[in-house]
Simulated assay, not measured.
Amino acid sequence: MNVLFIGDIVGNVGRSALKETLPALRSKYNPHIIIVNGENAAAGRGITKAIAKEFFDWGVHGITMGNHTWDNKDIFGWIDDEPRIVRPANFSAAAPGKGMAYIQGGGKSMAIINLQGRAFLPPNDCPFQKADELIEEAAERTKTILVDFHAEATSEKIAMGWYLDGRASVVLGTHTHVQTNDDTVLPGGTAYITDVGMTGSKEGVLGMEKEAVLHRFLTGLPSRFVVDEGKWHLHGLVIQIDEATGKAQKATKIRLTEEDWLLM
């Protein structure tokens, strides 16, 4: 089976890029299942029900989140009723939503798990212990398991990749918005990349207007970050998985820009 994961979608620019390129991405990679990280989809902060519906209408099968899950309060009214979206599973047990879902597409199915790192991010339950718990549960139902590890530190992400090698089909990092060049299949058969990257303006700083970011760095004073409206780039990962074993066979990163994507 083929799985397509699109990295952190930032604001209207990122959503437009997704809508514009999905038909061509489907044609080229023939993904059975498409997953996106949507924690920055609503003006860079969280996601709304309307935006999630747009993604599903465009052909997305599952949405993962991260540390901005609760930034848009709209989510509290519907996350418990949407089976195709996951927030970090190691959030407090009192948090609404869930950290693992079983999604279907193209006649295939897989488990998706969302976890958040603890290095340089707010404290949460141990993501490694939560991964053990959820993968054991998922393995009773399916051999194909994808983990979105939303974390800041590259070391923590790499550690998670090795920790889950041979137990998850895919472990990929999100959050830092910069695509890394280490897409690979680990010895145990787990596809891995430290960060998938982002989908949004390539002319700002991590999708935000650069002026406000520079002001904060130069002065140390607060700045209001606004999504940049420049030309987009789209980052993702396509993974080929042997359904019989749950092992990944190949992982290939995707990097498109608004100017050249039609040449893909």
Score class of each variant (00 low, 15 high):
residue 92 S to R: 00
residue 92 S to C: 01
residue 92 S to L: 00
residue 92 S to D: 01
residue 92 S to Q: 04
residue 92 S to K: 00
residue 93 A to W: 00
residue 94 A to R: 01
residue 94 A to K: 04
residue 95 A to M: 04
residue 95 A to K: 00
residue 95 A to F: 03
residue 96 P to V: 12
residue 96 P to S: 05
residue 97 G to P: 00
residue 97 G to A: 01
residue 98 K to F: 02
residue 98 K to A: 05
residue 98 K to Y: 08
residue 99 G to V: 05
residue 99 G to D: 00
residue 99 G to C: 03
residue 100 M to E: 05
residue 100 M to I: 07
residue 100 M to S: 02
residue 101 A to I: 02
residue 101 A to K: 07
residue 102 Y to I: 06
residue 104 Q to C: 09
residue 104 Q to T: 05
residue 104 Q to E: 12
residue 105 G to H: 09
residue 106 G to E: 04
residue 106 G to D: 03
residue 106 G to I: 02
residue 106 G to Y: 02
residue 108 K to F: 06
residue 108 K to C: 11
residue 108 K to D: 07
residue 109 S to V: 10
residue 110 M to D: 06
residue 110 M to Q: 05
residue 110 M to A: 08
residue 111 A to T: 13
residue 111 A to R: 09
residue 111 A to L: 06
residue 111 A to I: 09
residue 111 A to D: 05
residue 112 I to W: 02
residue 112 I to S: 01
residue 113 I to L: 06
residue 113 I to T: 01
residue 113 I to E: 04
residue 113 I to W: 03
residue 114 N to S: 03
residue 114 N to F: 09
residue 115 L to A: 04
residue 115 L to S: 00
residue 115 L to T: 03
residue 115 L to G: 00
residue 116 Q to N: 10
residue 116 Q to M: 14
residue 116 Q to Y: 07
residue 117 G to R: 03
residue 117 G to M: 03
residue 117 G to Y: 05
residue 120 F to E: 09
residue 120 F to K: 02
residue 120 F to T: 04
residue 121 L to R: 01
residue 122 P to R: 06
residue 122 P to Q: 10
residue 123 P to T: 10
residue 123 P to E: 10
residue 123 P to I: 08
residue 124 N to S: 12
residue 124 N to F: 14
residue 124 N to L: 11
residue 125 D to N: 15
residue 125 D to Q: 12
residue 125 D to I: 14
residue 125 D to P: 11
residue 126 C to H: 08
residue 126 C to K: 09
residue 127 P to I: 02
residue 127 P to G: 09
residue 128 F to I: 15
residue 128 F to G: 15
residue 129 Q to I: 15
residue 129 Q to E: 12
residue 131 A to W: 07
residue 131 A to C: 14
residue 131 A to M: 13
residue 131 A to E: 12
residue 131 A to K: 09
residue 132 D to G: 15
residue 133 E to C: 13
residue 134 L to I: 11
residue 134 L to V: 14
residue 134 L to E: 06
residue 134 L to K: 04
residue 135 I to G: 10
residue 135 I to H: 08
residue 135 I to K: 08
residue 136 E to V: 15
residue 136 E to Y: 14
residue 136 E to K: 15
residue 137 E to L: 11
residue 137 E to H: 11
residue 137 E to K: 12
residue 137 E to C: 10
residue 139 A to G: 10
residue 140 E to W: 12
residue 140 E to H: 14
residue 140 E to L: 15
